[in-house]
């Protein structure tokens, strides 16, 4: 490759233009997905956008860890394609939950790697730390919550609601509050790795406590909500990594996923609040508790 061409390809502006092309295709594809006639094409257009975004990201010079990157992508293909092709139509919601979960897990791990790579965010601007830790908490919640949703729908665990009774709400508040407390301590300047591991673990327990009380019938709504969560986490990761493709793609999923969750709940005669409150086994007709959202 000629040096001139190489420097053009790896130019920051060229990369940004490719990102703009990519997220335009995401938005166009997503609007196609809302109609039965345009949906197939819409999904494929978004897929093309994704390929462009990946290629743009790989245009860095010097390029490190190429073997690991190829290996990781190959494993991703090797696991993802057969899983998606072989799953039965009836088992697709839990497969979506699983794919959503690994996405959330990826965001959480990226935040952890950022923490380690910068020496515990010691010299990192505060706003980057806040967005990164937000993505770590939400990503971990999404990963573990989605895995519970998968396990329930796949009947690996009992689909019935499971709660700690009167301790349920205090336990949820304690774990989420603890994760936020860890985030505050790191933002305030603590560089101890124990804190970010504790943050991820507390967020994980919160994710489990969030989804375990929810009955199998309500699970599609919960998967949609966790999908929106992963989108928000991805958008936050995009701000912390200064990556505009991540910001746009994550945020349109965060926003559209929230609206979609609301519409799914309405279609099932439920409200998001009553689904999250859980413990009803998806019987339906539970009293609505104010505006959802």
């Amino acid at each position: 490759m000629q040096p001139v061409l190489a420097s053009f390809l790896t130019d920051v502006d060229f990369k940004s233009v490719l990102y703009i092309v990519a997220f335009s295709l995401f938005i166009y594809g997503l609007s196609g997905l809302t109609g039965p006639k345009t949906a197939v094409q819409g999904n494929r257009i978004a897929g093309v956008g994704m390929v462009i975004a990946v290629v743009a990201t790989l245009l860095v010079d010097p390029f490190h860890n190429w073997f690991l990157i190829l290996l990781g992508l190959a494993i991703g293909f090797g696991v993802g394609v057969p899983a998606a092709r072989q799953v039965k139509m009836t088992a697709m919601p839990q497969m979506v939950a699983l794919f959503n979960g690994v996405g959330g897990g990826a965001v959480a791990l990226i935040a952890w790697a950022e923490f380690r790579g910068t020496g515990g965010f010691e010299f990192t601007p505060t706003y980057i730390v806040i967005f990164s830790l937000f993505s770590a908490i939400v990503g971990s919640v999404s990963f573990w919550g989605s895995n519970v949703a998968f396990a329930k729908l796949q009947e690996l665990i009992d689909g019935k609601p499971r709660t700690l009774g009167a301790l349920q709400l205090p336990a949820q508040l304690l774990t989420l509050g603890g994760a936020i407390a860890c985030a505050i301590a790191i933002t305030a300047g603590s560089t101890s790795e124990i804190l970010i591991v504790l943050l991820l673990v507390l967020a994980a327990i919160f994710g489990l406590l969030l989804v375990l009380p929810i009955g199998g019938a309500d699970m599609p709504v919960v998967i949609s909500l966790l999908n929106a969560f992963t989108g928000l986490a991805a958008a936050a990761a995009g701000v912390s990594l200064d990556n505009q493709a991540l910001i746009v793609a994550g945020m349109i999923v965060g926003a559209s996923g929230t609206i979609l969750t609301q519409q799914m709940a309405i279609a099932m005669n439920r409200t998001i609040t009553s689904v999250i409150a859980g413990g009803f086994g998806g019987g339906g007709g539970e009293a609505a508790a104010g505006p959802a959202g």
Partner: peptide, 12 residues
């Protein structure tokens, strides 16, 4: 479909 789009986290 939106789940696939947030798969963009792979970029991170």
């Amino acid at each position: 479909g939106t789940n696939a789009i947030h798969g963009i986290v792979v970029l991170g």
